[in-house]
Amino acid sequence: MTLTVAFRKSGRTVAWAATDSLLTFAEENGVEAPSSCGAGVCGTCATALLAGEVSYVEDPLYMPDPGVVLLCCTTPKTSVILDL
């Protein structure tokens, strides 16, 4: 089964290819995403998850509010739509 990642603001949908995080994946696909620590401690990469589910590959310092994900420490569990 192929997972897809849709970037709503950029209007693009891309097939997920294994990388360490959605943050790296967004950057590799030329989608601007805010970030600082890259390690789940600063919250800079918090982005609304409009559809789908993610899994955390690393426990963040603070779990974001429901509907928001930290791109730097997540990968998609299902196909997702991100507000990016």
């Binding site: 805010p34 970030s35 600082s36 620590c37 890259g38 390690a39 800079t44």
Partner: peptide
């Protein structure tokens, strides 16, 4: 070994 933060 972390990425260079954009706000840095």
């Amino acid at each position: 070994g972390q990425r260079v933060p954009k706000a840095a």
